[in-house]
């Protein structure tokens, strides 16, 4: 029997970074997604079936949960009342900012500009230090597809960071 709380504690730092990536580096959305994912795991809606490592599975749950929240928000944005509430809640809060250095802010902005799958792949490989095969398992795609997106993502990221001509 796996100790879920201990496992979540162990992977919390990486999970938060992954949630940020899934939410295009928006901290409030990432915290919501992470909380919802933990809730799913603890109440048994998401069950670890040991078909992969706990981290791979946890990242999959976070990715799906973030996508659900994103869809829900996109739907809610159609309502005018919600639009007002969202405007109030998206005020930047410097105290809660995750990234404070200019270099990291540039990287985060470049990552946010990538397509979702490309962002996920470079994050998993460079930030989480997963292999392309492990990243493919998290994203539920084939290794070949993951490799293609990964190469494109690297090129685009270098372009966005202004390093495209140096390579």
């Amino acid at each position: 029997m796996i100790d879920l709380e201990a496992e979540l504690e162990r992977h919390h730092g990486a999970a938060f970074g992954w949630a940020l990536s899934c939410c295009a580096w928006d901290r409030p959305s990432a915290e919501d997604a992470l909380h919802a994912a933990y809730l799913k795991i603890l109440d048994g809606s998401a069950v670890f079936a040991r078909r992969s490592t706990f981290r791979t599975w946890l990242f999959g749950v976070i990715r799906r949960t973030a996508a659900e929240l994103r869809r829900r928000r996109a739907l809610a944005r159609l309502l005018p009342l919600d639009r007002l509430a969202q405007r109030a809640s998206t005020e930047p809060d410097p105290e809660r900012a995750v990234i404070r250095s200019e270099a990291s802010a540039r990287l985060a902005a470049a990552l946010a500009a990538l397509a979702e799958r490309q962002r996920a792949l470079v994050h998993l490989v460079f930030y989480e230090d997963l292999s392309i095969a492990q990243a493919a398992a998290v994203l539920g795609v084939s290794v070949g597809t993951a490799r293609t997106h990964y190469e494109r993502a690297k090129r685009r990221l270098r372009d966005l960071l202004g390093e495209g001509d140096t390579r």
């Binding site: 900012a97 990234i99 250095s101």
Partner: peptide
């Protein structure tokens, strides 16, 4: 560098 920064501010 990004990771170090995020980890420093992880809730």
């Amino acid at each position: 560098a990004l990771r170090r920064e995020v980890e420093a501010h992880t809730p």
